[in-house]
Structures are given as structure tokens and as C-alpha cells.
Design a protein around this nucleic acid. Structure first.
Lengths: 261, 261
DNA sequence: TCAAAAGTGTTAGATTTACACCCATGC
DNA sequence: GCATGGGTGTAAATCTAACACTTTTGA
């Protein structure tokens, strides 16, 4: 009997919290509009491209970090805010890639048992992908989730709603843009070795690249600066460190480099 | 005095209409969400790429054809519906290219003098571009506009809101996609000559292409079917007619052809 | 001495670009 | 005959892909 009451009390408390959350959302954000981010991080030790995911409360499956657009907030700023809250990282490369607007895409939630009533309506979501420095990120769960962490893109858990599709289209979009322009700023730490860069490209494109040719190509576009530093790793020659020449890099990103890789 | 009353009456009538329109929108469409279409048509006589524009009531500038998303309507379906209403054309190629979400992008309207109150809120808009057969289209104005017609992309009138930006990004997106895959289905009539196709490509890409090389390239991808028909034009050899082989064309559109042109 | 890093050489083959030449045909 | 269309030839320049050789250097 006692336990039953305790449980009920806790349930009520949880209810109360969710109702408050619902009011907060109601008064601060645009209804029907969400955004979701496919946040990529490159684990250069395990040589894995990872994506940030959240485990939602009341659910067994995972979702992409997302959020809503403040009533007077620019769409892009909303995405930046969400990314900062979730990752703590600054220097985030963000790109909008597609808006998802199937009429029934959030029916699962509308019919589900959340008490955040504000969520119980149809949502259209704007998809962004983001490139962040894996090592700088401290995954941070939000109010609606119970866990937050990196998942290897080749080994994803069960995924809610249409977030699997959003992820796949985000990855495809990243691949395509790598064909047209350099990627890396954001995904790598400020200083990195050439083989880290090559590994990153191989993982994004999902194929091996020839080292010599890669070296010449990357040098030709002069987007890198060689530093007078070296990283000590193993029982062999220490690799040089490089960083992006921001000016040339931005130029290349803006104007594209035709299909390079 | 009499005229004054007449004017006032007409104003009242107009007011009444707009309020009704506002209620209609309120009960049928999602608030805050719009879509705008950059509709391209190829005028093969004047050799101009044209874009469909509307002149809004109460305004001197022009805008892109747009609309809203029905409460239970898929986003893409809404775009298709708007396009059909505005152009009468079937067989429309539609592609979403970007969502525009600056907080102040519709302030002009919020502060303007429309009585369609539903419009007096912030809107985020999803941009689509569409390719239609210029000759099949009968431009059709909507309730909120006073005129509708084709404009040469090299000679546009004054444009409202951020529709200039939306147009430019739509055109850029069309150009890019032409680099990766064939375009033309939709923009050309069912039957067309090779030089019409080449003209189209030259106008979209804004540069001359070598005829011989163009011929070989287009043939290599086998997306065309030569017909046993000829078009009689002038005092010279009549050109053959071609049409797209829909299967191969769709295949190429889906899988891309790397950078071709 | 080994293993990885850094840089360069080389070559076969494909692709691109630019011209140019041929024939056909409607008027 | 002439202007346009349709089709092919070709050579130079450039780019790609694959491989291999050299030197450096930390443990």
C-alpha cells in the first residue's frame, strides 16, 4: 500500500513536470516546427565516424538531438543553440540539408503517452548535419531524454520516428559535399596529422584512397599549413602536424573544388 | 459624397473577403509554415529561361508562387498542389532545395496593411524548384495576387521579401544538379530537337557547349530516343525529334552521372 | 633494425577540349 | 547554293590510378 502511494506520487510529480515543460514550450517556441541534427564526430583512435544520439524518456529507441525554434529566433540560430546545448562544443560546422514533412511522421508521439501536450501535434522538421571535434564534445542529455552518447554509424541502435531516414540523408549529403569541396574543419582537432585526415576521408567516402595521390591532391589545393610540430606516438617516425589555412579552406568551401576525391 | 460611399463600400467588401480568407486559412493550414516554388520554364523561341512570378495585391513588387501546408497534408503534396493550381501543368519535376527561416523574413507583411490576419505572423518557408513545360502552362493567379506570368531570369522585376534570395538559391541548386545528373524532362515538351536540348543546357549553365562533344556525351548516356519524325522550320534541313527514354532518364537522375557537362 | 611517415617518380589509360571535316536536305 | 542539322575523326592537354622507390626517424 505504501509503495503504491509512493509510485503514484512519483507519477504525479513527473506529470506535473511534463505539464510545466509543455507550458514553457508553448510560450517560447513556434508550434509544428522542429529541427534535428545529425552530429558527426570522428573518433580517430577507433577510426570510426560517430553520430550523436539521445535515448528518449519513456522509449526504448534512440533519436537525433533536436529542438524547436524560438518565436523570434532565426532557424539557423536555433540549430546552433541546440548543438551547443547538446555538445558543449564551439566551432561547429552546420549545414541544412533537407526538411522532412510527411503528415504522419510524428504520429508515434501524438499517440504515445507523454504528458508534454505541446508535443502532441504534427511536426515538420528541418534536418541539419553538423561536424564537431569528437574530443571536445561532452554529450549532454536534454529534458526529454535519459541518455546521450556517440554511436558508430556502422552500428546504430533502434531509432525512433523517421530519424533513421534523416540520418541516412544527412550522411549522403555529407558524402556528396565532400565530393565537391573539402571537409574536415570541425571534424578534426585544430592540429592533426595527414594520415588522420586521410583516414577521415576514407571513412566518410567508405573506400580506400591512395596515399601518394591523396598527399599530392591535398597539397595542390593549399588548404593545409604544415606546423613545426610533431606528434609522438609509437616506435616509428613521428608524424608532422598540420592545421587548415582558414582563408583558403573557406574559399574552397564557398567556391567548391569541382569533384576532387 | 456618393463616390466616397462607394469607395468605402468597396473597401468594406474587400475587408470582408480578406477576413473570410483568413478564417479559411486558419482552419485548414498549419500556421507559421509556408512553401515557395521557383518554377522554371524554357522558352525555346526566345531562348530564355523563365521563372513564374505573381504580383501581390496591395503591392508593387512580385513574388514566387507559394502556399501553405494543409493540416494533414504531406509537405511534398502541398507543393504539388500549389504547382498544379498555379500552372495547370501535370508532369512537374519538383525538388526541395532549402528552408528559409530568418526571424524577420516576413516582417514586411506583418507590418503591412493586409486584412488577412492569419498572414500576420512569422513564417518559415520551404523552397522548392520546379521544371515545367513552358508551352503547357497557363499562369493562374491566386486569391492573394493580381497578376501572374513568366519573367526572364535575366530581367526580373522588383521582388518582395526574401524571394530574390530564394530564387537565386533555387537557380544555383538547379545548376548544381545539372552538373551531377541530366535535367530536361519537364522543362522540354515531350518531343524536342537536339539543339533545343543543347540550348537549354547552355542557358542553365550560362556558357557555350561544343556541339560535337555535347552530341557524343548525350548519346553515350542513352537517355534519348530518336523518333521517326522531323520538324519543319526554315530554309534548311529539318531537325530530327527526340524524346527522353523515361527508364534510362530516371535511372540517371536517381544514380547521378558524376559530373557530366 | 623495424615500422610508419613523407615525399617524389613514373606510366598506362581515360577524359576533356577544341577544331575540323564529312554528308544531308529544304528552299 | 547556302544555312542548318547530324555525325565522326583526331590530336593535345590534362587528369587519374596504381605502384614503387627513397629517405627520415623514434624506440
Amino acid at each position: 500500500m505504501y509503495f503504491e502511494n509512493l509510485e503514484k506520487e512519483m507519477e504525479n510529480e513527473e506529470n506535473e513536470k511534463e505539464l510545466q515543460e509543455s507550458h514553457y514550450l508553448e510560450s517560447n517556441f513556434l508550434p509544428h516546427i522542429a529541427l534535428d541534427c545529425v552530429v558527426f564526430g570522428f573518433d580517430s583512435e577507433q577510426l570510426q565516424l560517430k553520430v550523436l544520439m539521445l535515448k528518449m524518456k519513456h522509449r526504448e529507441d534512440w533519436g537525433l538531438p533536436g529542438g524547436f525554434v524560438g518565436k523570434r529566433e532565426n532557424l539557423e540560430d536555433a540549430a546552433i543553440r541546440v548543438l551547443k546545448e547538446r555538445t558543449g562544443a564551439k566551432d561547429i560546422y552546420l549545414k541544412q540539408f533537407k526538411t522532412f514533412g510527411k503528415a504522419n511522421r510524428t504520429d508515434e508521439i501524438i499517440e504515445g503517452n507523454t504528458n508534454v501536450l505541446w508535443l502532441k501535434r504534427r511536426f515538420i522538421t528541418v534536418g541539419f548535419y553538423a561536424l564537431v571535434d569528437y574530443k571536445q564534445v561532452k554529450p549532454n542529455k536534454d529534458k526529454l531524454s535519459s541518455d546521450c552518447g556517440w554511436k558508430d554509424i556502422k552500428d546504430l541502435p533502434a531509432i525512433m520516428l523517421d530519424h533513421q531516414t534523416i540520418f541516412e540523408e544527412g550522411l549522403e549529403s555529407l558524402r556528396r559535399s565532400l565530393m565537391l569541396r573539402p571537409v574536415g574543419y570541425g571534424l578534426l582537432p585544430e592540429k592533426f596529422t595527414l594520415s588522420e585526415l586521410q583516414n577521415l576521408y576514407e571513412i566518410i567516402l567508405d573506400r580506400k584512397l591512395n596515399r601518394g595521390n591523396f598527399y599530392r591532391k591535398v597539397m595542390k589545393y593549399q588548404i593545409l599549413e604544415k606546423l613545426n610540430e610533431i606528434r609522438n606516438i609509437g616506435a616509428h617516425k613521428a608524424p608532422f602536424l598540420y592545421r587548415f589555412n582558414k582563408e583558403r579552406y573557406d574559399d574552397a568551401v564557398t567556391n567548391g573544388l569541382k569533384d576532387i576525391w
